[in-house]
Design a protein around this nucleic acid. Sequence first.
DNA 1: TTGTAAGCGTTATCAT
DNA 2: ATGATAACGCTTACAA
Lengths: 350, 350
Amino acid sequence: MRKRLYFCTQNKKEQKMARPTINDIAKALNITPSTVSRALAGNTRVSAATRELISRTAAEMGYERNLLASSLRKGSTDTVGMIVPRINRQFFSNVISGAEAILNPAGYNLIICQSHERQEDEKRAIMTLMRNQVAGIIMSHSLETTDSKSLADITKSGLALVQFDRAFRDIEGASVTNDNFTGAYQATAHLIKSGYKRIGHLGGDLLSNVYTDRMEGYKKALADNGIEIDESIIFNDSITRDKGFYNMAKALQAGCDALYCSGDYAALGVIEYARHNNIDIPNEFGVIGTANENFAELLTPALTTLEQNAFDMGNRAAQAFLDIKQGKSDAELKIEIPMRLIVRDSSRKG
Amino acid sequence: MRKRLYFCTQNKKEQKMARPTINDIAKALNITPSTVSRALAGNTRVSAATRELISRTAAEMGYERNLLASSLRKGSTDTVGMIVPRINRQFFSNVISGAEAILNPAGYNLIICQSHERQEDEKRAIMTLMRNQVAGIIMSHSLETTDSKSLADITKSGLALVQFDRAFRDIEGASVTNDNFTGAYQATAHLIKSGYKRIGHLGGDLLSNVYTDRMEGYKKALADNGIEIDESIIFNDSITRDKGFYNMAKALQAGCDALYCSGDYAALGVIEYARHNNIDIPNEFGVIGTANENFAELLTPALTTLEQNAFDMGNRAAQAFLDIKQGKSDAELKIEIPMRLIVRDSSRKG
DNA sequence: TTGTAAGCGTTATCAT
DNA sequence: ATGATAACGCTTACAA
């Protein structure tokens, strides 16, 4: 009593009261902490009356359960870690939103880390998450990450792992990817049908499943239409705006009249090069991107592109995590989402 | 010994060993947990030899400190909570990156929540973060949040609070905002100098400091140039693309020949309306946005806009958090960042 | 229905 | 320089 009084008459700085614990509630009501704990957990083995009393007092005292203590004791947290290359890309931030939309209602919350496309940062992120005892990790690996070793450590230590978009195939655990092969196939086939004759490809780093699959889809579409594959008009580079601009010049030199690009930023570079050189898109030259970034429809001409299903992918990745927790086997959890071709002006030949 | 052997010869499912603790390390080396703890903490009062031995053994055993236990004991975490309305807006995700760039090197990591512009979600996020015992909260409140009550709870419970962009002025703690008043002033003055005669304003919700300040800046620029303020051409609405389109029609009816918009999406709507109605921007009509979204420079015509300093704002918000931890007084931590007008085609009159 | 007591993995305060 | 011990706030057998 004395102590409490003292405590409440401190000067302004100390007036911020320490957070009340279940012990404080117990003392205030002359019961034991265990009863309080049970009541607050909604346990049935507490009389309705005391349960009501306890939760009222808890609210009055401004009690908030200390998740640190709770999780330590229970040996598990309700936190899921998410690692993305960059948070400021539409695609990744929408995947995050999609995952959150499933996980929050399920009682989990998300801690998000960026790898900045660097393996070093990615490793650090994994360690951080593991130290924070997350219940699982949902991630898309950095482009710098070429071996799956650090990902293997995750499952080895018993954590649920869900890979999305970029996924190592030799890793146990769930994965949710786009059907990049079929998407690229459709895009390329569309260019062929539109009447373009010499169709090149701006691809990304071939160490990633995403870009190899798209290149394969591109090649298959050509092959199925009896067009010979010409490696000299396949440009595997980073798919930035600058590189798009740069490689468009080379594609023109090589006689291309269309490009399927593995990213909208590269396609943007292509369009800008064409604009600077008075090349008419789509009449003289056709271009298709990938991702449906928010600017794609705003360009002149509007960019034909492949929808990357970001929000849906987040949904499914989160659901896969929940499924793992339910004990579903990994084998059932290799998910592929179809991509949708959004036809706009940049590929509509005269 | 027997137990351990048993443990290591389980079948595949159970082979995932429980994480080693400092007790395991201590047992393995025949020393006490306290020494291990001290050594791993880099405490000097452990002989260099044992310290070396311990850290090697820890690495070998794959030890990772349990942050739950550590934080519980220490009474504080190295986690900072961040609440943003939406993660998939360039502005907010760049603020997050900016904050991360300061906090990670300082040994903190971030847990990010979205309010989806809803007060309900925001309250839940605050509770979640407090339950997770974060060291502080960096946030920009939702548009739905009109009273500062739940924010006051944060500081009241002793947590460091940094508001950014949207900030209640009556709240103790730090804040980092743009100088919206001066920014809007500059934008409007630029339109006047460019020769536009009847300049309207598409503003946002006046319950937010951001939009009131911009409107005031707009008004002051008119007043300083001897132009009468006409409330009938000030449209305070949500600053979406659709509303921009819609209000552009009204602005034209009211005889406007230019608009300063409190957001790039609204300005986009304006441009689209003009395009549909064959109105020549910038010759017949001038438009300026706010935020410098990534599409702004890509539009035709390219959009003049105000740079919102997202990354820098994140940097400063994080630094303000660290300053609070260092005991700096709140009074020094009310920061305003100047906005820069980026002049592009949409405001360059013939 | 409620109380007792042990323990989750650390760290801090004593000793030695 | 190292060890013994208590405590952080919570949950959960087990007992009553």
